[in-house]
Amino acid sequence: MAKSTSGLSRKRMGEMYRTMLRIRRFEETADDMYMAGKVVGGVHVSIGQEACSAGVCAALREDDAVLTTHRGHGHSIAKGTRLPEMLAELMGKVTGLCRSKGGSMHIADVSKGHYGAHSIVGANMPMAAGIGLAYQLEGKDRVAVVFFGDGASNNGAFHEAMNLCAIWKLPVVFFCENNQYAVSVPAEYSTSVDDISVRSKGYDAPGLTVDGMDVAAVYEASREAVAHARRGLGPSLVEAKTYRFFGHSRGDPHYGMYRTKEEWEGWKGRDPLIVCEKMLKMTAKQKKAHADAVETEIREAIEFAENSPEPEESVALEDIFA
């Protein structure tokens, strides 16, 4: 498994830390709102997996695309999605990114190159291939990244999309967050290989497994995969070994149902925020500066979402056809 070599600047590392903290605090807030009955629909948080979102998106340009999953808040935030409109979407407000019709599982901010969270597992991969095809046809060096999980890597859409990208040399990075479980089913049961990245060999594409709790390692692998795509050399498959500290949703506990307390504690000890703080040898003062800045953003998002109106009834009948 690739570890970071850490030739990264403190500035870059600091930015990624900030992004991870922003994701963490947004999702803690979303969870609080959910428990307070203020969220419409469900929420799947990615707490524990923030290094993946932050590391990948730090390797992208603003005009690159991402597509994500039902567990997509982190990718959305890392790609620049606006927090107030995102929280408003979760809370069923008409000012939400999807006008309260998509909810947490369909967050999108196309103006930021975020082509959506897609809640049907695997469905985003063929669409990412199509966005890559559009970029190739227009002759620009833009790249699409598709995030998916260990579960989706067993879906036929993964194979078909990888194959299309490989034969047409499409500028797509397949980024697999292997958080070890598809809801309750362990990857070691459902998946034919230990390292999902080896499946890239079937498509004659580069594959690499990285430590998904180490944001620098994720960034370095992503930078390489994105550069490969930008040069017109086709897709790569990057797998990050990671872990969600929460259940699949609020319907299952953090541990004790299909994950043991020991396993959970082992991963919790490798919290990507703490790993990054150690790498940066961050002082208490520096940590507080990051925390204060993020709290301001979160407060503004809450204020915006709380004060936004619910949709008028007419909204139910809008946006069906262009």
């Binding site: 695309a65 196309v110 082509y115 469905a123 991969m125 063929p126 669409m127 990412a128 291939a129 199509g130 966005i131 890559g132 095809l133 559009a134 970029y135 046809l137 699409a144 859409a157 194979h159 078909e160 999309a161 194959n163 299309l164």
Partner: peptide, 12 residues
């Protein structure tokens, strides 16, 4: 695969 890709290309 190619139908999903067409949806992506249409969005783009």
């Amino acid at each position: 695969g190619f139908t999903g890709a067409a949806v992506g290309a249409a969005m783009a």
